[in-house]
Design a protein around this nucleic acid. Structure first.
Lengths: 133, 133
DNA sequence: ATAGGGCTTCCAGTCACGGGAAGGTCAAGA
DNA sequence: TCTTGACCTTCCCGTGACTGGAAGCCCTAT
């Protein structure tokens, strides 16, 4: 398979696949003409990576997960540790975003959004006391 | 005020303040010795930027908000438009993260996390059918 | 005179790619 | 046979919003 085929079948852009080779996540063979030549095993790895990335794992976490995937004697505890850590990161991010969201939603609600200059959003950002015109 | 003072009073690192000058968000004066010399107005701007950044606005959104803040004849509708757009981005991000979270939480729950190699997390990433033994 | 802390500029690195240039390769059609 | 066009290659730059670090100037205190 050439890179275009694996790109289509894995859903990853060709650029991304080349990048993954650059950083050592995959090592496809080369044809006589210099083209990358992918086997089913490479495709399988790329699909694994695509799913792990879709769950938000960093590249280095993906690398670790891939190693564990290929290590038949792994302990599931190692996998779980990575996943739990990532889950906590996600939860922290959601909490941060929720706080931003709530603050901003309150400000948006308070803003008339008309042609007048009075704006509680700007007043709050400028640390002014919002008051009546 | 030198940069160290504004850094302490705005809560922004000196590096960040220099960066904001680089990209034209602020234009502090210079003392005879070449040091940046900040006025209260600059400090106020930096505090504005710090709050806007804390709400997740991008630098370019911050630039627009700052312009509106300084434009006495603005329409609050312009501010609100930026804020609403950002709010929608936040909501989309939260939804994405929540989906990752739920999928990952299910997998983590299903993983024993012991010394055995069986792992539903890896099986799912590898697109295998999780089964018994 | 020297030590230290603060200030300056500039360059490189982060993360995970994406865009685009310059050029080699291959199959199909005129 | 030649050409067209799609595909592939490498290489380098740009993204966002900084952060780290080097090399060197400035200022104050001892």
């Amino acid at each position: 398979m050439n890179i275009g085929d694996v790109a289509a079948r894995s859903g990853l852009p060709a650029k991304t696949i080349r990048y993954y080779e650059d950083i050592g996540l995959i090592s496809p063979d080369r044809s006589a003409n210099g083209y990358r030549s992918f086997r089913e095993k490479d495709l399988h790895k790329l699909a694994f990576l695509a799913r792990a990335r879709a769950l938000g794992f960093s590249i280095e976490e993906c690398r670790a997960l891939l190693h564990l995937y290929e290590d038949e004697s792994r302990a599931s505890a190692e996998v779980k540790e990575i996943a739990v850590h990532h889950l906590e990161q996600i939860e922290r991010k959601i909490a941060d975003l929720r706080e931003m969201h709530d603050t901003l939603a309150t400000l948006v609600d308070a803003c008339a959004g008309d042609q007048r200059p009075d704006c509680p959003i700007l007043q709050t950002l400028g640390n002014e006391t919002p008051g009546r015109g």
